[in-house]
């Protein structure tokens, strides 16, 4: 399973969204996108919903969100979350 990773915690808006969409275009059935962000990226999630992709968002603490997105709905994204602790 290939992971496309983006740590966007120190990126200014809207760079994370721009980079995320670039990454999403590379996704296939054998890969998933993993992003760390300081906020819940609402516009990205809206686009992901519209495209019918599988996704989860998890807030680890106030300034840390894990966002996982895949094309293949059979991928268990919850198992792939890596909490930073």
């Amino acid at each position: 399973m290939r992971r496309l990773y983006l740590d966007a915690r120190n990126m200014e808006h809207p760079v994370p969204l721009e980079k995320s969409i670039e990454a999403l275009r590379e996704l296939d059935n054998e890969s998933y996108f993993y992003m760390l962000h300081r906020k819940n990226p609402v516009p990205l999630i809206a686009m992901v919903q519209k495209q019918g992709l599988s996704y989860i968002t998890e807030q680890e603490h106030e300034d840390l969100w894990h966002i996982l997105i895949a094309v293949d709905h059979d991928i268990d994204l919850e198992k792939l979350v890596e909490r930073l602790g």
Binding site: A46, Q49, I56, T57, E78
Partner: peptide, 9 residues
């Protein structure tokens, strides 16, 4: 906190 967010459509 897992799950879908009620984001902007």
């Amino acid at each position: 906190m897992f799950g879908q967010q009620n984001g902007l459509s």
